[in-house]
Structure formats: structure tokens, C-alpha cells
Amino acid sequence: MGGDDGEAAAREGAATHFGFRSVPEGEKAGLVRGVFTSVAARYDLMNDLMSGGVHRLWKDAMMDWLAPRDGQRLLDVAGGTGDIAFRFLRRAPAAAAVVCDMTEAMLAEGRKRAEAARLADRLEWVQGDAMALPFADAGFDVCTISFGIRNVTRPGAALAEAFRVLRPGGRLMVLEFSRVAPEALAWAYDRYSFNVIPAMGRAVTGDRESYQYLVESIRRFPDQERFAAMMRDAGFGLVKYRNLSFGVAALHSGWKL
């Protein structure tokens, strides 16, 4: 991604994490976009391979808890290739969805899938920033962020934006990697993550570094309780979470009361 940004970094001051690397805050979005542009074409395949198809169960669990209804308007933030939006529309044939993502390549992939699935006319695709959503206040009934928020430079800002664009009574549901609690399981999960996933990434997509970023970024992200607190800080009420696969992933739900 960029060349030497030492001076810019000094000016910008704040540093953040990009996986286990430390990077100036202003750089992170570009780095993330680089990762997802690189993986976009094989994104869905890699998800299946890395999780043994289990990510589909997690996304189905998200839909079960969400209980989509006809007439609802969904904003799927960092929605990438549209996995969540598609599921939502299948469950609620008279609902509508907007997919917003920072990475053009992911949206382009998603739109291709939508055309193939014949859902194209109920989906809108917008390239935008989760921290500065290009939508008016209170226009959506439901907001989802699935495996996206840990990539956002300032997750708190994304939560505040989700709160803003939801109508009163609206709901936010976040699906994200989280902390595995049972220690023996955590050890096995770490071994799998750090030994298998980057190598799989290189074998399937030729890109080891993006998958190294993936497994590192998971460790950097707040745990279940901490993320629930962040949602409350953003104004959400009735914040609850459910672990999936012993905490490998978690669903967080909150309401704009």
C-alpha cells in the first residue's frame, strides 16, 4: 500500500493496530481495502474452506435471531459480497436491503452473485465508509455488520453511525469473531488459526499476508463483554450477546430505544 509515510504518521499522531502491526490510524482503511480487494474474488470460497462451512451456520443463526419481516429496510454495513443481505431477503421476500462496503471489488462480486440469484432488483450497492455512512438519519429498520466491524479503524464510530441511521425502535445485530473461553479449545483454535489459515490462504488465493491479517485482527478485537459495553456507549439498549461455536464467533444485538 503507500510508500514511506513516516512524516504523515508523525503528523497524524494516533496509531492503531492492523493485525499485530502498529500503523498510523489514517492508514488502516487503505490497508484493509487492499486486503479485501485482493481476496474478493475468492472470498466466499475461502470462508467455506477456513470454517469448514460453519460460517453459513453462524449467518443462519444471525437470521434466526433477527427474524426478518416483510416491509423492513435493512442496511448491511461492510456487507461485502452480500451474504447477509441475501439471507435477509430470502427470509422476507417483501423487504429491501442496501449493502454498503468500503471495497469496490467486494461490491462488484456481490452484485454478480445477486444477478445470478435473481435478487438484483431488491438490493442496492453503495461504496461507503462505516464511520461516515452516506444515509440520512433514522432511515433503516435493521442494521447488520457481519465480520466487518473488526476491520473498521474506529469501531465506536461505526456503532454511532449505525445508531444514527436506525429509526427509533430499530435494531443492530453484529456478527463477529470473538473470544474462545475454554482454554484447551482456545489453544487448539490458536494453532489452527496461525498454522493453517495463512497457509491455506496462500495455497488457494496466492495471498498469505491477507489471511495472516485476518487471524491477527481477530485477536485484536474486544471480547464479548467489552464489545457489548461499546454498543451501550453508542446508545443501544437491551444489549445482549450469544456465543457461536464456543465463542469463535458471537452475535451482539442492540436496540435503538
Binding site: 462488484a108 450497492w125 453503495v126 461507503g128
Partner: peptide, 9 residues
């Protein structure tokens, strides 16, 4: 671009 609005500053 290609029908997708790019609303990034």
C-alpha cells in the same frame, strides 16, 4: 462507477 455510487471522501 458501473452504477455503484462511491460515497467515499
Amino acid at each position: 462507477r458501473n452504477g455503484i455510487p462511491i460515497l467515499l471522501v
